[in-house]
Write a protein that binds this DNA or RNA. Sequence first.
DNA 1: ATCATATAAAACCATTTGGTTTCACTTTCT
DNA 2: AGAAAGTGAAACCAAATGGTTTTATATGAT
Lengths: 108, 108
Amino acid sequence: MLQTAQKRDVFQAVADPTRREILKLLAEKELPISEISAHFPMSRTAVAKHLQVLAEAELVRGRKKGREKIYWLHPEPLTELREFYELFWSNKLSKHKYVLESDPDNEY
Amino acid sequence: MLQTAQKRDVFQAVADPTRREILKLLAEKELPISEISAHFPMSRTAVAKHLQVLAEAELVRGRKKGREKIYWLHPEPLTELREFYELFWSNKLSKHKYVLESDPDNEY
DNA sequence: ATCATATAAAACCATTTGGTTTCACTTTCT
DNA sequence: AGAAAGTGAAACCAAATGGTTTTATATGAT
């Protein structure tokens, strides 16, 4: 395993709120682990593990720069979220058949 | 707790592949638990638990009909997926700044 | 050379997750 | 009434998850 180890499901990678926040952070700019972990109440090690998970899902990439490891966002796999969403809510071909037929707001 | 118990995170609900399949099934039409579980290799009880999770996330709703419990899709919470996706890939205001600045295909 | 910084890797731990099996309950069918 | 069908709820279990702490390693600064 040269680099990112084995694939990881995008939906599962994104299931954790901390990991979603990390992605938002990296959307602004690339950051070293220490700076990322400064935004969270947990240990740096814990954040590093979250970054590994995100890397396995190809949602981030990292490079070594001196003694730092810099991570940056690689948002492409998020299109899977969009594709899933559109199975139910596509606006292209008007709405999905289920959505069309569903009554607006029957709360039970 | 009268009904759907406590809220459940949509991202987490959708993290499991079985649950995603269930949602696709229910997009076609509402179904009783037994019919849903017929599509999966696991026990009916396991599928019932997945349905409970989906219900806690408000992604499905259920009603009793005779001795059956019928579940149907309630896709509204999936908009959270879309909103998250669009933080990174919005096409409305052209692309997100990160996406704009990122070089196309630097593979490490 | 030495020391601080930044990370990596490993061991460990509690809780959650995704599954099972078993038992009880209600509804439908004969 | 009695049996079958469909579900609900509980107990149980192995594995995964999200944390921790500890130890080691490499880099940068003095």
